[in-house]
């Protein structure tokens, strides 16, 4: 089946909170091992899109496929088990747990203790700063370090797909570069990345493909380079941050 060409597919998805429908008829295909950006203004429904994929928000109609399997109405725990990790927007760690314990919590649904410890070790090699701070409380880390930790938490399940929501929000420019580099690293490791970003130019730099959401609908889609070159789109939807 050609379905396996895509790690993730949304077909005509409608979704939202109660009476309010945020996403309207959204169809998205994400190729394996790609970095795909979801762009758009505030309130366009980008975060809702990630939450719907992960299962926190239930779609009212449409279909969500993971590697060709229907996962439309599955709860988050089942999405996790099928290899999708989610890094929510804002601070999403356990501030009173140490860095090490946070990573252990990331591996909560795994039962192989030794494997988990080995993975944490690998992660410390990839993000040396986390290794240095392994016994520090997460709440005491800097913003950039916490963002690295949060991606680390998501990586503990060795996900096939990782959903990242606004990872650079409120970070200093130097750290923004580091975060994007880390996302590329994750992708190089064989993980498909779905990235929601405000900083469209930077996101497009590392992305293979991008979708532009406006008021809950897909307005444009295309290879990242094409979108980045299309001044009209940049101007109209992605211009000012």
């Amino acid at each position: 089946m050609a379905a396996n060409e895509f790690a993730l597919e949304l077909r005509n998805v409608f979704s939202g909170y109660g009476e309010i429908e945020v996403l309207q008829d959204v169809s998205i295909s994400v190729r394996r091992n790609a970095i795909v950006s979801i762009l758009g203004a505030n309130g366009a429904g980008k975060s809702t899109l990630l939450k719907t994929i992960f299962g926190i928000v239930r779609p009212t109609s449409g279909q969500i496929l993971l590697g060709g399997d229907d996962v439309t109405l599955l709860p988050p725990i089942e999405t996790l088990r099928r290899g999708v990790s989610y890094v929510p927007e804002g601070r999403s760690n356990f501030p009173g747990l140490t860095v090490h314990e946070n990573l252990e919590m990331g591996a909560y649904i795994r039962d192989d203790r030794d494997g988990v410890l080995a993975d944490i070790k690998t992660l410390y090699e990839r993000f040396p700063i986390l290794g240095e701070k392994r016994d520090a409380m997460a709440g005491n880390l800097s913003g950039g370090q916490q963002q690295a930790l949060e991606m680390g938490i998501a990586l503990m399940l060795r996900p096939q797909v990782i959903l990242i929501d606004e990872p650079t929000l409120g970070l200093a420019p130097i750290l923004v570069t580091e975060v994007f580099k880390a996302i590329q690293d994750i992708n190089d490791g064989g993980t498909t990345v779905v990235l929601v970003e405000q900083n469209a130019p930077r996101a497009l730099e590392i992305s293979d493909y991008a979708f532009v959401l406006e008021l809950g609908r897909i307005r444009f889609q295309g290879p990242a380079q094409e979108l980045a070159a299309n001044e009209e789109i940049i101007e109209a939807y992605l211009g000012e941050r």
């Binding site: 992960f54 926190i56 988050p76 725990i77 996790l80 088990r81 989610y86 929510p88 999403s92 760690n93 356990f94 501030p95 009173g96 747990l97 314990e101 252990e104 919590m105 990331g106 909560y108 649904i109 938490i153």
Partner: peptide, 23 residues
């Protein structure tokens, strides 16, 4: 213990617990 740590996790950030699969 794992249960103890996840109890602390729940006390600190219940929303995040759903994200990592803690019931």
């Amino acid at each position: 213990t794992k249960t103890g740590k996840s109890m602390r996790a729940v006390s600190q950030n219940p929303a995040m617990c759903e994200v990592v699969g803690i019931n």
